[in-house]
Design a protein around this nucleic acid. Sequence first.
DNA 1: AAAGCAATTTAGCCTTGACTAACTTTGAAA
DNA 2: TTTCAAAGTTAGTCAAGGCTAAATTGCTTT
Lengths: 146, 146
Amino acid sequence: MGDKPTLNPRHNKAEVFARLRDAHAREVTEDYVEMISDLIHEEGEARSVALAERFGVTAATVNNTIKRLERDGYVTSRPYRSIFLTEKGETLAKKCRDRHQIVYNFLVSIGVDPDTAEFDAEGIEHHVSEETLRVFAAVSRADDAL
Amino acid sequence: MGDKPTLNPRHNKAEVFARLRDAHAREVTEDYVEMISDLIHEEGEARSVALAERFGVTAATVNNTIKRLERDGYVTSRPYRSIFLTEKGETLAKKCRDRHQIVYNFLVSIGVDPDTAEFDAEGIEHHVSEETLRVFAAVSRADDAL
DNA sequence: AAAGCAATTTAGCCTTGACTAACTTTGAAA
DNA sequence: TTTCAAAGTTAGTCAAGGCTAAATTGCTTT
Ligand SMILES: [Mn+2]
Ligand SMILES: [Mn+2]
Ligand SMILES: [Mn+2]
Ligand SMILES: [Mn+2]
């Protein structure tokens, strides 16, 4: 009557894909708060036009996304003014920046070309669990100590 | 008059994000052809109901996706019958299966728990360039040779 | 052969994330 | 202080990828 005991417990692929869809739903948010934070540090403020240029999308697309981020509590903004991170946004931005850096450093440390690492890290970062991130960081440290 | 020589050539982040959006556009297709191929090998045929169960989505969603794959030349199907890969579909499936395996093996080889590796590989695989994949494979081989 | 259940399809809806085109606002230069 | 280009907004469109509910088909079992 109970579940059959299984040696390999996940023939339950559905969980894996559910988690994947969750990660996808967060990607744009994560890249935006990270970029907004970068702009504030590098240029003093985050303007729509700079986001559009850096992401390679139109101003209208940035506008839509910022409205969503505002709705979800990550940023504040007033018409025709620059964009600010909320506490929640800052917290996420820091987490994402750190994670991004760890992934990038890891790739370079195992021998990936820095240019390629920059491309790949932008996607990989959103699919790295806490555990894998810790392993990446440890490997980077070990490789640095050459 | 020429481009200014730059030490760090990519303050051109837009390229990175354009490539990222491309990768996203291919993800579902890649996971579907891989899964269809798995089902054909494991169960003799690929039925909608099995795809829905493994991905954790509804039958209607599978139907939409299969129509898109058919439109794009990856599968053939007839109403109420099972799904077949075209040559193009088979080729992509093989590439994706191999890549998936390399990413998974790599994660495990550097010390990530197999369970976690299974989750993370499902996302990471779509964002790994040819170059990074070669490095992953090389690292796995080196770690195996312990 | 008919019934009924499981599988599949269809129709209609939603959100995200992209676009173009047209309009409004801001702010710097004239 | 006027003007006008750049920045930002709004409106409308589209495809992908999800969903539910309802209709249809195929298959198995009586
Ligand atoms: Mn990032
Ligand atoms: Mn990213
Ligand atoms: Mn895969
Ligand atoms: Mn995948």
